[in-house]
């Protein structure tokens, strides 16, 4: 049982770290939001699942269910409002260069962070 808890915990924390990495490295607001909402919610869900398995108690389980329901219901709403606001604020978006016929755009053509 300890191994199950530990592995789920580490996978969840890895996804939380991936969300942070995505929000640091990705080029513009909407792509960053993609990293933060999906990976962040998945990481939180996995870590809370590990807490359910660790405590194995009805009161704790119901509380964690409430946290997960709130997170999964509110993350898309918040992301939608934030995306609409940033679109109306005319935040500069990341432009993908049209692929030239001889050479596909390489991974190295990272955007300059403004």
């Amino acid at each position: 049982m300890d191994y199950l808890i530990g592995i789920v915990l580490m996978v969840g924390a890895f996804f939380a770290m991936a969300a942070g990495l995505g929000i640091l490295r990705l080029p513009d607001v909407l792509i960053r939001m993609h990293a933060s909402t999906k990976a962040g919610t998945l990481g939180a869900g996995l870590v809370l699942l590990a807490a359910v398995v660790y405590f194995l108690d009805w009161a704790v389980t119901v509380r964690i269910m409430a946290i997960m329901v709130f997170l999964m219901a509110t993350a898309p709403i918040g992301a939608h409002m934030m995306g609409r606001a940033s679109l109306r604020a005319k935040v500069p978006l990341y432009k993908i260069k049209a692929p030239t016929p001889k050479k596909a755009p390489s991974q190295k053509a990272a955007p300059a962070r403004e």
């Binding site: 969300a19 929000i23 607001v29 960053r32 933060s36 990481g43 934030m82």
Partner: peptide, 29 residues
Amino acid sequence: AGLIFSFIRLVVGPTLPDRVVALDLMTVL
């Protein structure tokens, strides 16, 4: 590590929506 990454984005974020998204992620973390 994830918290520190999103805090860096919160500090350097070029626009206001960037900072709000970073703050949202910090709450989840």
